[in-house]
Design a protein around this nucleic acid. Structure first.
Lengths: 207, 207
DNA sequence: TAGATTGTTAATCGATTAACAATC
DNA sequence: TAGATTGTTAATCGATTAACAATC
């Protein structure tokens, strides 16, 4: 696993510590809480700069702020959500995008029954307005919660419209398709994740 | 990344190939499609047995079936879903649990407004009936879609009731907590995933 | 038989851990 | 100053890739 995949976990755990009122933490104590080795924590943090102090450890608030800066969660990258089904709505309700570096500009769907409805602060726009909307608002990221069958077409349209990053919940392997272009892709393959659990369960029961 | 994390992807891609009517595939062709090296594919598959044939390659249907067996997707591990909010419903609607080795026995929630309602084939049960239900039906796996604040209490109750595996969508770090016990945990930290994308986007824009 | 492609071993690479000198 | 703990280098480990003999 690479450092950058561990950064969000550091950030999250530091938030928990701050909530508990912890002010400073050593790599040793942190290791116990987060489940990495102290060595790895120090190694990781040093990739980005010396945030600690010999003999003292790390200041929780400072470290969280620094990691937040590295992750760019203090930014406001314009983003759109495509697909306002259960999954899209679940993401809207469970996550604070604005606390994770994104500003959600709009929600799109092709279902006439829900187009026009309002979710939180956003009204659901017709997918036909995508070109129109994007040429005005220039979102850089898109959250893809569409059915697999529509994924390729929508993704192509979005790339043509200048979208540079995808949070991809479809089965489509976007990272492969846009390999050569400067497109960032974070795939969330829930089915794969579930099958990993299946495998773990079968291992348990075989013992 | 370990072999077992790649197995679901093999399985998925083989399904796609089968759908397209592809009957046989060499590690070289497969590599191009799936985005791993041919060497890795051969190495991976050989961990579990010789599924290929020299000079021919791999039979798509056979290989998929074998990987399916390794992953245990043909099993029917009894499972329950806790939390019928947007996320829980999204999972119910997006995934075929029965095609991934699980049989969903019941759905639980604590919200009186939705308890008793029916989703697909299942009616939503009151969380108070958890002990009752589990001592009769003995689920081995639980899908945790509850708010973070309730996660620890629910997880403890489930472990006490004999649940051995969690598909965990809460912020809680279950794998750490049940480290020593024989509990399988697959965490899906959507927030972490989104932050990984934030980082990628910030890298893009810095260029 | 010749060509193709696996299975498998050996070489390489990168990531993790251990160790310790620097320093607060 | 002494104790603690980082920053950083070196050692270890595991995973990935390359190579090729086996064989269909």
């Amino acid at each position: 696993m690479s450092v950058t995949r561990r950064l969000p976990r550091y950030y999250r755990c530091l938030g928990d510590l701050a909530d508990k009122g912890v002010e400073r933490i050593s790599s040793r104590e942190f290791a116990k809480i987060i489940g990495f080795t102290a060595s790895q924590i120090r190694q990781d943090l040093n990739c980005f700069g010396g945030f600690g102090q010999q003999g003292y450890g790390y200041n929780v608030a400072v470290l969280q702020r620094e990691i937040g800066r590295i992750l760019a969660v203090d930014r406001n990258f314009p983003a759109i959500l495509i697909g306002a089904g259960n999954l899209g709505l679940a993401l809207l309700n469970h996550l604070r995008f604005e606390q994770r570096g994104f500003e959600l500009l709009g929600i799109f769907d092709n279902n006439p029954e829900i187009v026009g409805k309002t979710v939180r602060d956003w009204s659901i726009l017709d997918i036909d307005r995508l070109e129109d909307f994007c040429s005005t608002n220039h979102p850089i990221a898109a959250i893809l919660c569409v059915p697999d069958s529509a994924a390729q077409e929508i993704a192509d349209r979005l790339v043509a419209l200048g979208v540079k990053a995808f949070w991809n919940f479809t089965h489509l392997n976007l990272s492969l398709i846009y390999d050569k272009e400067d497109i960032a892709v974070e795939n969330v393959h829930l089915g794969d994740s579930l099958m990993t659990l299946t495998y773990l369960v079968s291992e348990l029961t075989e013992k």
